[in-house]
Write a protein that binds this DNA or RNA. Structure first.
Lengths: 353, 353
DNA sequence: CTGTTAGCGCTTTCAA
DNA sequence: TTGAAAGCGCTAACAG
């Protein structure tokens, strides 16, 4: 307060020690509450630190302690509202535990993913949550896991490692069964990428729901190529104008559903009278659309919190090699976007309720 | 390849030098392309580094060079889709320039904001983009700006500093004028917080549009309290059930508009016949809603890129004390959510065209 | 062109 | 309880 503003030169713990009239070591111990310091010394040092506007250098600390207190999180797209909820929860939990979140987004680019992982390693993050891991590269992951804690977020990066998974399989199963019960047979499934875990699981659930009824889905109605809205729009439009048009859509995520909704509107049909829609992932759009859209939902905050907690746990225990796997369940929220298919479209082999 | 996997112990540049048969300094120079090294040495060192799986320690580097190559970005809410677009652009530009983005979210909590800024300082970020700065605290900002580069993102943190601003004033002016032209007089403005720059500017534009017509807006229709959907829902509902209900809504951001749309539906009215709506900020919801909603839009990527570029510029030039101020313009996207007010609601002093 | 050396700011032995 | 000193891994300055 009485002292002038410390110019450009950063004040170090050494300056604090000097100002407090103690040695460097004592200042460090006082600042870190590491015990073995007199109460008086603590008071002196604290005061000096405050007066000088001391800001501990986290880099130097990390250097000595060999740990940064930073956890990396790699996702494919920050803007995805489904990720946003997870990110918030991860960050909140980590922050509460004194950890910092370093967030990066791959935009689905494998090269970018590689450089970002490299970046995390150079910065010596203590742990890494992988929510984007497009290329399967066991040996690289192996090495990664050997030098830091890795938690998979809805990805199958290793058969053994720790992972937080959403139960897309049963979600898709339930949603599909619901549509089948309503009498739909020609159901389109639009999902970004079938190689990634979510897509794989959903397709499996979708197929198994059909199998349980002793029937098979039309493979041409499973479109698992791209997540862009433009793509899903043209895709859905093509589907709708084919002679064997689907009577229902199962769509993943905001972008895809947006495209589908536009395609439905563009083709002159109405939802749900002509075609039913289920959103996999509950979003603002699904809730507020007219009519509101039946969705498959899961607790994003729970996913994020689980990631963070598993990470914190493995960070605190040295070498606890008991990999955890957590499965988050999905719930179906019934709204008004599904109806039995129009009579004209019903097949002869209509099942009972 | 022939060597065994380097166990837990991290391989340092010293190991690389040893393996390459050169000194530590030479290894460093070779790795950093800093010249004054023989091509052969470079080859040897590079090979050794690759074989050993050397990962440079960014902490140690930063320690020596006194710069981390990290830029912090503080926003109030990562999940806000308007921010997401900006964040992506900032990250992309920074990444391309070899910088890392450290992102944090305050959730509108001033305490959290304080600790996060502190966190950034401890981690010695080279620059800080402040997109959340709820409490005005000149002296703290002053100190901050003295130790690192600060860029304000749609905030007035200092009267002098570098800033990227969105032209909310003219945006609100234009939108309001449009509604006035349609004949609306009772226009409600819902915005989160009037203390922050965006709110302030929008309210000013709103009022000035009225003034230009020689009339005054009803102050009770300006609601600038909270950004939550629940709040805007009840707020809008209350407004709609009052005797002097508004015939149009100007709403900010997804959350507020969601609440307003629900309130309109809940009150049994239809949009745009009974009440018009303009969204400030163009979102998926605005585009896909039925009917599609007229919006005020601005180039999120341009905002983000501008932030990053201004930051990179001030980072590269030593002490260039020429603060830049960039203003991003808004565009109105006319869709189908606005109509003249219902005849019953029109005032006697109806203006021409 | 290369090797040696001095720290960057901090924590943590080890003596006192 | 405290002070002195050794490094964490790296870059840059200085000799050779």
């Amino acid at each position: 307060m009485s002292c002038d503003k410390p110019m450009k030169s950063k004040v170090t713990i050494r300056d604090v020690a000097k100002a407090a009239g103690v040695s460097l070591g004592t200042a460090s111990r006082a600042l870190n509450q590491s015990g073995h310091v007199s109460t008086q010394a603590i008071a002196e040092v604290t005061r000096a630190a405050r007066e000088l506007g001391y800001v501990p250098n986290a880099l130097a600390q990390s250097m000595r302690t060999q740990s940064t207190g930073v956890v990396g999180l790699l996702v494919s797209d920050i803007a995805n509202p489904l990720y946003a909820g997870i990110i918030n929860a991860v960050e909140a939990r980590l922050f509460a535990a004194g950890y910092t979140l370093l967030l990066a987004s791959t935009h689905g680019d494998a090269n970018r993913e590689k450089s970002l992982i490299d970046l995390f390693r150079r910065r010596r993050v203590d742990g890494l949550i992988l929510g984007a891991c497009d290329s399967e590269k066991p040996e690289m992951l192996e090495r990664l896991a050997s030098e830091l804690q890795v938690v998979a977020l809805d990805r199958d990066i290793t058969t053994e490692g720790t992972a937080i998974h959403v139960d897309h399989y049963h979600g898709a199963l339930q949603a599909t069964r619901y549509l089948l019960k309503l009498g739909h047979r020609r159901i389109a499934l639009l999902t970004p990428g079938s190689t990634l875990r979510p897509g794989r699981e959903r397709i499996a659930g979708f197929k198994d729901a059909f199998s349980a009824q002793g029937i098979q889905p039309d493979p041409r109605l499973i479109r698992a190529e791209s997540s862009s809205m433009e793509f899903s729009f043209s895709e859905a439009l093509a589907l709708l104008s084919s002679p064997e048009a689907p009577t229902a859509f199962l769509c993943l995520g905001t972008r895809i559903m947006s495209g589908v909704l536009q395609a439905i509107r563009h083709s002159g049909r109405t939802m749900p009278d002509d075609v039913s829609v289920i959103s996999i992932g509950d979003t603002d759009l699904a809730q507020l659309f007219t009519p509101p859209i039946t969705s498959l939902n899961w607790d994003l905050a729970a996913v994020g919190t689980a990631c963070a907690e598993v990470m914190l746990r493995s960070l605190s225990t040295r070498e606890a090699k008991e990999p955890e796997r957590i499965l988050i369940t999905t719930q179906m929220i019934l709204r008004e976007s599904c109806m039995p298919p129009p009579v004209a479209a019903r097949t002869a082999v209509d099942m009972t309720s």
